[in-house]
């Protein structure tokens, strides 16, 4: 009987996140009715979860091989500066800006990988230190201000633009569309799909999960663990760049510290997603559900008149519960 009780408890823990999601949808619908339970609001929720999800996917690929990235938010902000400046200051076409931003994120991520793989600094510490590097270098790049339409370029841009620092172009409808539905949602879905295929369908995903389960055993199975960690880092950089671009487009400007606050929300989504369905693995679908849960809670509570400045506490509480579910049941103490 105890075993059946135990397994029932385990199932409950495994599906707790989904249960909370369904319950909160029901509760909010009961309170707000059609205002909450409508297509328009669903799109609102999906839109607001997109950015969190994309950053959370970056965290998912980092964490699958037992890595970590505390600097995803700050790098995202830096990417937004770069994206906005290429577009506004230099008037490059949109596709080129996107590609260059992704390349830029990967190049910046080489530094992260250098610290982790070559200097052997623990992931958490290396990326904590890099937060400051990203923030400082980012603002040095923009000349200390945000990058938005109509503002002049930073003084170093003279090298490329000559003495005329006035902006080369303003935001165009296509750039703006990235941050609006349906495109923002489509981008999110594509990112989830990429992450899902990488982790669940390719051999690389297996290598990464093997490393996450037991690095020594993975290494002794002939997996090149450093190469795989590097690859995971490059995928993280890809998602971070996309996340930075989306945030920039949504705000119509590359704001100072624009993406920094997404870090904690994204980590919350990843941890919530880990235990869904008893996977005990950081996975793309779980992460997306985690992000959805957070967005539903935020959306519903705002609608019910809960003041916005309390919302972080709610997010924190959900994260705590997810972590308790993940660790309280583990055998070690």
């Amino acid at each position: 009987m105890t075993t059946s009780k135990k397994s029932a408890g385990k199932i409950l823990v495994n599906w707790a996140a989904v249960l909370v999601l369904v319950l909160s949808v029901i509760v909010f619908t009961m309170i707000k009715g059609g205002a909450f339970f409508s297509t328009t609001n669903l799109i609102n929720i999906l839109r607001s979860m997109s950015t969190v999800t994309i950053f959370a996917l970056a965290a998912t690929v980092s964490m699958a091989p037992d890595g970590f990235d505390m600097a995803a938010g700050t790098l995202g902000t830096f990417c937004a500066y770069v994206f906005a400046s290429f577009f506004l200051w230099f008037g490059m076409p949109l596709w080129l800006c996107i590609i260059l931003t992704i390349i830029f994120a990967m190049v910046m991520y080489l530094l992260t990988m250098f610290l982790i793989l070559v200097c052997k600094v623990p992931d958490m510490l290396a990326t904590c230190a890099l937060q400051f590097v990203h923030q400082g270098l980012g603002l040095a790049y923009t000349g200390g201000s945000a990058v938005s339409a109509g503002m002049t370029a930073a003084s170093w841009a003279k090298i490329f633009k000559g003495d005329d620092l006035s902006p080369a172009s303003g935001w165009t409808p296509s750039t703006q569309a990235i941050g609006k539905d349906p495109w923002i949602i489509i981008i999110m879905v594509i990112c989830v799909a990429i992450c899902y295929i990488l982790l669940e369908r390719t051999k690389y995903g297996r290598y990464l999960y093997a490393m996450g389960g037991n690095k020594t055993a993975a290494k002794l199975s002939g997996i090149n663990v450093k190469k795989m960690r590097f690859m995971a880092g490059m995928f993280a950089a890809l998602f971070i760049a996309i996340g930075g671009i989306v945030v920039c487009s949504r705000n119509s400007a590359a704001q100072i510290n624009g993406s920094d606050s997404y870090l904690m929300s994204s980590l919350a989504a990843v941890f919530i997603g880990r235990s869904i369905g008893g996977r005990e693995k950081y996975n793309a679908i779980g992460t997306a559900i985690g992000a959805l849960l957070i967005s539903v809670l935020e959306n519903g509570m705002t609608m019910c008149g809960v003041v916005y400045y309390i919302l972080p506490a709610v997010k924190g509480a959900v994260l705590c519960l997810a972590l308790v579910a993940a660790y309280a049941t583990s055998k070690e103490d």
Binding site: T202, K203, R206, N214, I223
Partner: peptide, 27 residues
């Protein structure tokens, strides 16, 4: 060091030779 205890028998038996079970990196 020898096996990945958190993974399935299926996963473990393919862990050292995944290339043989892949088409274009897809397992």
């Amino acid at each position: 060091e020898g096996v990945l205890v958190a993974e399935t028998v299926n996963f473990n038996l393919a862990a050292a030779s995944l290339n043989r079970f892949c088409k274009l990196s897809f397992v």
